[in-house]
Design a protein around this nucleic acid. Structure first.
Lengths: 172, 172
DNA sequence: GGAAATTAGTTTCATATGAAACTAATTGCA
DNA sequence: TGCAATTAGTTTCATATGAAACTAATTTCC
């Protein structure tokens, strides 16, 4: 691969008006998350013919068997359309079955089949191993620190997403 | 919005075989990055009619005017197809112009137009303000810590993606 | 009871994505 | 030189995404 920072290319001095993308937190988080998701997906995607949304549905149902599609969507922070499609595909492959909630027949009650559980139980150790490798060089204190920083950032980002008070009339 | 953890729903005890998605680092990073990207994009997407890839192209060209599309892709960690399309759209809207590299006529030499620069210079302060809000509650020590943790994680994830790539000092 | 409003989930539609095939220009090397 | 291999960038194609419209079941409220 070619190196990109050759001597002839000179960067604009990062003054007030030039932003260093490589130092910009939203960009860095995006790159990191994509790298991690991508490399983790390599572990299971082909081997188990599973997409990321499908894996997430299984992961949630592994902890909360019998919940509805909407609850899966909330737990996994996924769109309901994405969940609907992942569930449909998992059912088509015999990895999930859909019961109907006795009290509310609009709701589904999703459970893994024996086959789905097998897949799930084979992936979980791989996922844990991946995470362990990712954090192999981090001390306990660093892990705690990382945990708290992510937690706080997530809270902040959620807060910033919801506009607080409409300061101006909506023009957009 | 409805609460999801009602009394009747009991989680499988998080033993060896059930993975807690909400504690799983790849999942948490993905949720965080999506939240941040989404809330930041709200700041500029509609107001400037700009997609995330387009904003990134501008951000890179703001620092490295005159580089080629391929160099933009490397700098922004974007796919070359995505860059190609973002560049085409930016040119169509008069925000970029494409010169040809004198030495290698396959290469483009991308530069913002005055109009592009105006957009860029209006977004940069907004982007900085967003980042500042996100980090408002973080001390200098915490920011340093966050910076280093992200840096190391990114390096680890890159290493895990390429199983046998030699350790390389990428400056990002 | 029953019409209107609400909710769970699916389908449609328009757009975004990236791998692979492709075009055009350049470089390697006989 | 000239032709094969390489490289920059675009287009094609197959798939992924999510907003909005839709269907079906339920709840609200008169």
């Amino acid at each position: 691969m070619k190196l990109i920072a050759s001597a002839r290319m000179q960067a604009v001095p990062s003054s007030d008006n030039a932003l260093r993308l490589e130092d910009f937190l939203p960009y860095r988080l995006s790159v990191l998350a994509n790298l991690v998701s991508g490399s983790l997906a390599r572990v299971y995607a082909r081997r188990f013919d599973l997409t990321v949304p499908e894996w997430r549905v299984l992961a949630v149902l592994g902890r909360y068997p019998g919940i509805s599609a909407g609850e899966v969507a909330e737990r996994a922070a996924m769109d309901k359309v994405t969940v609907s499609r992942a569930v449909a595909r998992l059912i088509a492959r015999g990895r999930l079955r859909r019961g109907t909630d006795a009290e509310d027949r609009r709701r589904s009650a999703l459970r893994m089949t024996a086959e789905g559980r097998t897949v799930y139980q084979r992936i979980v150790p791989l996922a844990r191993a991946y995470e362990a490798e990712l954090l192999a060089d981090f001390s306990a204190a660093e892990r705690t620190s990382l945990d708290r920083l992510i937690h706080r950032l997530t809270g902040e980002a959620a807060r910033l997403r919801e506009p607080k008070a409409p300061a101006q009339a909506a023009d957009d």
